Amino acid sequence: MFAINRENLKKSHQTIWFVIDFLMLGLLIFNLALIIFDSAYGFAGVQDFFQQSVPAFYNFYQPIHRNFIFYDLIFVSIFLTEFFVRWAEAVWHKTYQRWYFYPFIHWYDLLGCIPTSGMRFLRVLRVISIVYRLHRYGIIDFTRTRLYRFIAFYYDAFMEELSDRIVLKVLSGIQEEVRRGSPLLESVHKNIIYPRKDILVGWISDRVADLASQGYAPNRDALRRYLERCVAEAVHQNPELARLKLLPIFGKQVRGTMEEAVGDITSHVINQVMEDLSSSRNHDFIDDLVDVFLPDHQKKLVYKGTDDTELAQRQDNEVLINLTLEIIDAIKEQVHKKRWREQL
């Protein structure tokens, strides 16, 4: 059931109206329950059941059923009184721009007062409006009720199933278009990726710089020792350099000096490359590298005459198509997962 927030009720300074809301809510629920029961009581089988099983209740309710319109008019008179009081209050406080706007905005309150079977159930909308108003002002919290959680859960489940089927249908259509050689990939490259090449180059440049500085700097000494061992093994296995040991007097020294020099040069070159990659100077290198993978559309037309270029381009397109299809398959697999089942 609803838990009434007394603090918000005091802060609202509309206690009297909220009390009326609660009274009207109780009357509406009772009236709707009575309407539903009387509708069911109208069947001859139901009347026979009460006549045989509960004759006292049958004798009590039979006059009410025959004159139900009269008893319903009692509720209607109360509802109309409350309606006109609220209309007067809205005119007094100028809630709406025109005094006659209130009955049009609250049409369901007015039509629900018509005592016919088709209009009576519009009173359900009045129940919903009262509950919403109380919830909006924080007097009650409808989201904590079991009914709300039950409806919200199955509504979310229904919407997830519906949206998943739509998304899967769309993704399958995209895959079919890609397999048929749709110009989608060329359009993505030409109109989306290439115009943003500078942004892509800047992002890759920053990532490479971060990886080079964070990955190389802490392991510089270990990498140098590793290179020195590799160079020493290569020198020992090289037959031409092994003959230096045959030189009289300085053979071993020359070989050792050369081994150290090669190791220093190799370490220096690698160190310089990693420092360049970890600095802003790597931007031009990354730019050239991106140009290889994302050539300009106009530049690709220049080389279109060579067979090797056309073959390489077709192979690149096949790789890109397969990659796109695999990405869409991964998305479809993720869409297939039902979150509402996990919650259940």
Rank of each mutant, 00 (worst) to 15 (best):
residue 19 V to K: 06
residue 20 I to C: 07
residue 21 D to T: 06
residue 23 L to I: 13
residue 25 L to Q: 10
residue 27 L to C: 08
residue 29 I to N: 08
residue 30 F to P: 01
residue 32 L to V: 10
residue 37 F to A: 13
residue 41 Y to S: 04
residue 42 G to F: 08
residue 42 G to V: 02
residue 46 V to R: 00
residue 47 Q to I: 04
residue 49 F to D: 06
residue 49 F to Q: 08
residue 50 F to I: 11
residue 50 F to Y: 12
residue 51 Q to C: 08
residue 51 Q to V: 04
residue 53 S to W: 13
residue 55 P to K: 14
residue 56 A to N: 07
residue 59 N to E: 10
residue 63 P to V: 07
residue 67 N to C: 00
residue 70 F to S: 08
residue 70 F to H: 10
residue 70 F to T: 14
residue 70 F to G: 04
residue 71 Y to I: 05
residue 72 D to A: 05
residue 72 D to M: 06
residue 72 D to N: 13
residue 75 F to M: 11
residue 75 F to H: 07
residue 78 I to K: 03
residue 78 I to Y: 11
residue 78 I to D: 00
residue 80 L to P: 04
residue 80 L to W: 06
residue 82 E to L: 04
residue 84 F to W: 06
residue 84 F to N: 01
residue 85 V to E: 01
residue 85 V to C: 04
residue 86 R to E: 14
residue 89 E to L: 11
residue 89 E to C: 05
residue 90 A to I: 00
residue 90 A to M: 02
residue 90 A to E: 06
residue 91 V to Q: 10
residue 91 V to H: 02
residue 92 W to Y: 10
residue 92 W to C: 00
residue 92 W to G: 03
residue 95 T to G: 05
residue 96 Y to A: 06
residue 97 Q to S: 15
residue 98 R to F: 12
residue 99 W to G: 06
residue 100 Y to K: 01
residue 102 Y to I: 03
residue 104 F to S: 09
residue 105 I to F: 10
residue 106 H to A: 07
residue 106 H to I: 00
residue 106 H to M: 06
residue 107 W to E: 04
residue 107 W to V: 14
residue 108 Y to T: 14
residue 108 Y to N: 11
residue 110 L to W: 13
residue 110 L to G: 07
residue 110 L to K: 08
residue 110 L to Q: 07
residue 111 L to N: 00
residue 112 G to M: 07
residue 112 G to S: 12
residue 113 C to K: 01
residue 115 P to Q: 03
residue 116 T to W: 05
residue 117 S to V: 15
residue 118 G to K: 04
residue 118 G to T: 11
residue 118 G to A: 11
residue 120 R to Q: 14
residue 124 V to R: 03
residue 124 V to C: 05
residue 124 V to M: 09
residue 126 R to C: 04
residue 128 I to P: 01
residue 128 I to G: 05
residue 128 I to M: 09
